[in-house]
Design a binder for these strands. Structure first.
Lengths: 239, 239
DNA sequence: TCTTCCGTAGAACAGTGTTCGCAGCAACGA
DNA sequence: TCGTTGCTGCGAACACTGTTCTACGGAAGA
């Protein structure tokens, strides 16, 4: 799954391949280990080098800079995403399955989603997912132009949601009851606002506090799919 | 517009107010000046302190840490957003107007959107915008629970899009033709992919390359609104 | 065997957020 | 009027960060 043409903008290791135990793969693996244990902020060039019992300068023979390392880490993580087989329910079920899978995998790797927001994920696994999304959307009978844009917007939505969730998990640095307490505080604050200046916010205190991260993600996903359905021509697709 | 109750989680300046020219407001203004001229990465505590002809330690008497400074900068930026008056078109026009306004203001301030993704914007101006969105959605006749969640998802979408756009503007460090060239390279890369493994990606090379950032944002916004419309009960709202 | 190459990695550069501790000034009690 | 107290301003320092320079060493080719 990784023998696609190498992108022209990806700088190759400074020249040839390393002959010593150090290699892109070994470094990548070490970096992902640190990501799993200490989060993205733990992944520094020094920390990765230390994990491999070497100095930070050694890594630069295999990666042009830290961003390139992060990009490849991100694509590696996307490799864990399973895309649904042909003929597993209708297109909405398939699309939701992909979205939930990507979200799950991203969140399970700390706050790596941040990387996906910053760069366009064009690694082999990013392409594989993009291809899968395009396939599902076309199969649904959505016109090509809308298919292309929808895949773009959906990727953005999934990554942004994963980033938001993983980030607030990192802020409260641990227990779920801590972030629950934070949200309770926010709701309490809404309740204390002057109703004449914030009539809607105060009136909707109940609904605003309702629903966890998953519910909200599902709602957004649903909105997305409902909107997309309106682009399916009357004669095509939904059967 | 700034005399709402102070949030309990906002740490106040270490005690009392500064009597010297240094104050939250002066620091904030200096930081925003740097943001405008050098982008978010230029905003370091040292750089801000230098702008005020002082040392970095002085800032910590007015802000608990850099994150707090960034949060207040973000809310200050949101203060530039104009929300539509009562009765300016139907709810879809109003919602779009708010979304475009927020996006425009965020992008016009470098990559400040990054801050909005990381924290929940609960400053006075964040609340004002949230209130405006809730109002428009309720007016449309959407049930309360869906109103609450939709405002949440829409904020996420706008901020994420603004971040993506501002970030890629920062990457290409200047000329729009540079990022155009980058995108042309990406499309060229899509074209070079093996069609048997990437049938949809290669088939959709045309549509994938179509449309600029604004068109894509508008498309996502439209998807969102179309989906939202399906939640309006048959007897309510659209008249 | 000698030379040429090239990955390795220590040291250093220029930054970062944040804290410590000391100076100096304002206000208050005696 | 004279301490004394409290608090802000801020230079210096700590523990980091990404990245580059440069000397070193071992393997491959002549």
């Amino acid at each position: 799954m990784s023998d696609v043409p190498v992108p022209p903008w990806r700088t190759t290791p400074k020249s040839g391949q390393a002959r010593k135990p150090l290699s892109q793969d070994v470094i990548l693996r070490a970096a992902l280990r640190i990501l799993a244990e200490e989060g993205l902020e733990g992944v520094s060039m020094r920390r990765v080098a230390q994990e491999l019992h070497t100095g930070p300068a050694s890594l630069y023979a295999h990666f042009a800079n830290k961003d390139e390392l992060l990009e490849m880490m991100f694509d590696h993580v996307l490799g864990e995403v399973r895309v649904p087989e042909e003929g597993e329910g209708d297109w909405t079920a398939k699309l939701k399955a992909i979205a939930w899978e990507v979200r799950r995998v991203l969140i399970s790797h700390g706050d790596i989603a941040q990387v996906g927001l910053a760069v366009v994920p064009l690694g082999p696994n990013g392409l594989r997912l993009s291809e899968a999304m395009l396939g599902v959307l076309r199969e649904a009978g959505i016109p090509d132009q809308q298919v292309a844009w929808a895949a773009d917007r959906l990727s953005l939505y999934i990554t942004a949601d994963a980033f938001e969730v993983s980030y607030e998990a990192r802020r409260g640095r641990g227990s779920p009851e801590e972030i629950a307490a934070y949200y309770a505080g926010v709701i309490q604050y809404f309740r204390s606002l002057p109703p004449d200046r914030f009539p809607h916010t105060t009136a909707l205190v109940g609904p605003l506090g309702q629903g966890d991260d998953e519910t909200r993600f599902e709602f957004g996903l649903d909105l997305f799919i409902r909107g997309l359905s309106t682009y399916i021509p009357a004669d095509g697709g939904t059967s």
